[in-house]
Design a protein around this nucleic acid. Structure first.
Lengths: 210, 210
DNA sequence: TCCCATTGCCGGGTTTTACCGGATTGTCTG
DNA sequence: CAGACAATCCGGTAAAACCCGGCAATGGGA
């Protein structure tokens, strides 16, 4: 079976690299798009079997592009190709109708496999993200944005600003031990186990600026 | 002329895509690295003609990797491959000794051209970044002085990535005590006295991404 | 040539973090 | 009302981070 593929990815070098790779694997790359809007338009015109979409694209992101594609061409299956493994992206992608989710940090063979499976009507998830989905199912919770409570976010911010536990306790008018528990619970929830990780998380989430 | 190339890029799919692309163009890809440290080690072992380095890599970023490469293998020419067109990255890259600077948003032909030029001893800049360089020359715009030494920046990056002192020592092949003194010296120089502050500094300076 | 910056190493100290337990109160919701 | 969860507090331990000295080899620049 020859599988007709569309690639949407804003970095041209990367996109052409993917194309070379897929062609070597005997897929037929029928179109390349630089942004989500172009991707939806080309999909309508050419109706590929599979559309591979980067999530981070100008004009229209991959999530919304898939929603658009599912409306106009429901028979076209889409695969997300991204560097993000965080649950908010994964769950949002699945809700939008992606049939595959592949991390850029995985080997190319994963992408090849994903295309084959999705083309056959199956679902393909990168191993690292399967866990996220199972967790979400078991918890019956599509974690909204932020699993942290108000109080925990306050503590997170102060930690990320470089305050010691003692200073945090003083600022919030609680005991040092309590501040410590908050910090510990934050770490458990986020599965981050060092201060540096908390700081990076806080910056990514916009809790503080670098 | 066959050009022996090393590719360093942390996202495996992207890296393998680039490899497929370059091999189609008859370059010989002699090595692939997932981080800057691996890239410098492989460069020493295999001495390629050209090393293509992503700027954003774990363990050791592309800028510092090029510095290291220029010390141990000055005959190896390096090309930066990145999504960043901001002057701080471009100028820092040139100061570090990169002979080529290609944006991921450019067509693959630019990368091919860059490899050919650089291999021949020339300099290659993506059109969009040439402007930055000329501006900097005309305006005598230079980067804010970075008070840290190469070694200190390496330690800083690892600290900001959440590595413990012991892990840093192991990574760099030095004693834990030495790693500790580096960290202490960094803190004294920058007048930053906590990990969180170091992480924010590292992100501001582009040593790591959030 | 002499000096200084850099890098690496060591001892010995205090403070803070990270992780392990457990407990109480109030609120909101099914 | 029961159960879940948020927020608070507490004790203990081992590891790590932080801070203070000093010392030695190196190699390049004044």
């Amino acid at each position: 079976m020859t599988c007709r593929v569309l690639i949407a990815e804003d970095h041209v070098v990367v996109r052409q690299g993917l194309k070379a790779l897929l062609e070597r694997e005997k897929f037929e790359v029928v179109a390349e798009a630089s942004d989500g809007r172009e991707a939806t338009r080309m999909t309508r015109e050419l109706v590929p079997d599979v559309a591979i979409l980067d999530l981070a694209m100008p004009q229209l992101n991959g999530i919304d592009a898939t929603r658009a594609i599912r409306e106009s061409c429901p028979q076209v299956r889409t695969i997300a190709l991204t560097m993000y493994a965080e649950d908010q992206y994964v769950l949002a992608a699945l809700q939008a109708g992606f049939r595959g989710y592949v991390l850029k940090s995985q080997a190319a063979s994963h992408l090849v496999r994903a295309i084959q499976e999705v083309c056959r009507g199956e679902i393909y998830l990168s191993p690292a993200v399967s866990r996220v989905v199972v967790d979400a199912y078991l918890g019956r919770k599509s974690l909204p944005e932020n699993p942290l409570t108000q109080r925990e976010r306050e503590v997170l911010q102060l930690v990320a600003e470089g305050k010691t536990t003692k200073e945090i306790a003083h600022t919030l008018g609680i005991s040092a031990k309590t501040a410590e528990s908050h910090r510990a619970r934050i770490m458990r929830k986020l599965e981050i186990h060092d201060t540096a990780g908390l700081v990076r998380y806080a910056i990514r989430r916009g809790v503080i600026q670098a």
